[in-house]
Simulated assay, not measured.
Amino acid sequence: MANIIGLLKMRVIKGSNLVIKDSTSSDPYVIITMGAQKLKTRHVKNDCNPAWNDELTLAITDVDVPINLTVHDKDTFTSDDQMGEAEIDIKAYVECLRTTLSGLPDGTVVDKIFPSRENSLADVSHITWKDGKLVQDMVLRLKNVATGEVELQIEWVNVPDSLVLVS
Score class of each variant (00 low, 15 high):
residue 1 M to S: 13
residue 2 A to C: 00
residue 4 I to P: 00
residue 5 I to M: 15
residue 6 G to H: 07
residue 10 M to F: 07
residue 12 V to C: 07
residue 15 G to A: 08
residue 16 S to Y: 00
residue 16 S to C: 01
residue 17 N to V: 00
residue 18 L to S: 00
residue 23 S to A: 14
residue 25 S to N: 14
residue 27 D to I: 03
residue 30 V to H: 02
residue 30 V to K: 01
residue 33 T to E: 14
residue 36 A to H: 13
residue 38 K to R: 15
residue 40 K to P: 03
residue 42 R to N: 12
residue 42 R to W: 04
residue 47 D to S: 15
residue 52 W to N: 09
residue 54 D to P: 06
residue 55 E to M: 12
residue 55 E to Y: 03
residue 56 L to E: 14
residue 60 I to A: 06
residue 60 I to Y: 03
residue 65 V to H: 06
residue 65 V to N: 08
residue 66 P to T: 10
residue 67 I to N: 13
residue 68 N to I: 08
residue 68 N to S: 14
residue 73 D to Q: 07
residue 74 K to H: 12
residue 75 D to Q: 11
residue 76 T to H: 00
residue 80 D to R: 02
residue 81 D to M: 06
residue 82 Q to P: 06
residue 83 M to G: 02
residue 86 A to Q: 04
residue 87 E to Y: 12
residue 90 I to K: 03
residue 91 K to Y: 05
residue 93 Y to P: 05
residue 95 E to G: 01
residue 98 R to D: 04
residue 102 S to Y: 13
residue 106 D to L: 04
residue 107 G to S: 08
residue 107 G to M: 10
residue 108 T to N: 06
residue 109 V to D: 05
residue 110 V to L: 01
residue 111 D to H: 10
residue 112 K to T: 15
residue 112 K to Y: 07
residue 120 S to D: 12
residue 120 S to T: 09
residue 121 L to S: 04
residue 122 A to C: 01
residue 127 I to E: 01
residue 127 I to T: 13
residue 130 K to L: 13
residue 130 K to G: 01
residue 145 V to E: 08
residue 146 A to M: 08
residue 146 A to E: 11
residue 148 G to S: 03
residue 149 E to L: 03
residue 153 Q to F: 00
residue 154 I to R: 04
residue 155 E to P: 02
residue 156 W to Y: 15
residue 157 V to W: 05
residue 160 P to D: 09
residue 162 S to M: 03
residue 164 V to R: 15
residue 164 V to C: 09
